[in-house]
Write a protein that binds this DNA or RNA. Sequence first.
DNA 1: AACAATCATCGCATATTTACGATATACGAT
DNA 2: ATCGTATATCGTAAATATGCGATGATTGTT
Lengths: 105, 105
Amino acid sequence: MRTMKPQVAEKEMDRLADLAKALSHPARVKILDILNRRNACICNELVDEFPLAQSTVSQHLKELKRAGLIMGEIDGPRTCYCLNPDGIAEMKKIFHDFTQTFKGK
Amino acid sequence: MRTMKPQVAEKEMDRLADLAKALSHPARVKILDILNRRNACICNELVDEFPLAQSTVSQHLKELKRAGLIMGEIDGPRTCYCLNPDGIAEMKKIFHDFTQTFKGK
DNA sequence: AACAATCATCGCATATTTACGATATACGAT
DNA sequence: ATCGTATATCGTAAATATGCGATGATTGTT
């Protein structure tokens, strides 16, 4: 044991950067917030919340899916999006662990 | 009072996205970690920690400064970087508030 | 079968990011 | 004054991100 300091491992920092990238656009943060407050959401409804084209929203959804934060379930001609509990839990843990390493309130 | 749900305001979500952008590169996450574990750090020492050119590290430092997470104090021919306590505190609060809005562990 | 609706993907344009080497600036030492 | 060290900034190239409209694929409806 070389140090006692609460450390965040290299891999966790890489994953943190990856999650942060997924959150690095306001539209994506807001999508997560919407999916959280409603329990799930048809893609269409999401599009209505933004001044963005449908294809653009779809791309943002893809990035959130890539990061493991949401899931999309095909339901007839629609796609129903919801949070991915595992990804959200991981995000909570990693952000918590990281921010906790900093002293102060 | 229109809703009781714990909400993260639009502005906070925008700031979250901005902070996330600053954390969206592994090198920048690691710089914060280094500055946290040592109390402060000469730019030069930082450069040695990465397989990156000095100018590249300097750019990453600039982005972290832009986001308000670090400060650079000129000290003779060197620049001594350290965490910006206010920015770090804000980051902790905003990430905490946001992640807390999600149910589950 | 034809049509409308929903959504992902493609192609493209533009903007931003990332990285580097070269240069400029500032300072300390000789 | 010259030189070396440390660092920021500039110019540039390549990669990635962002946004849009058009197109495709799928499904439900008529």
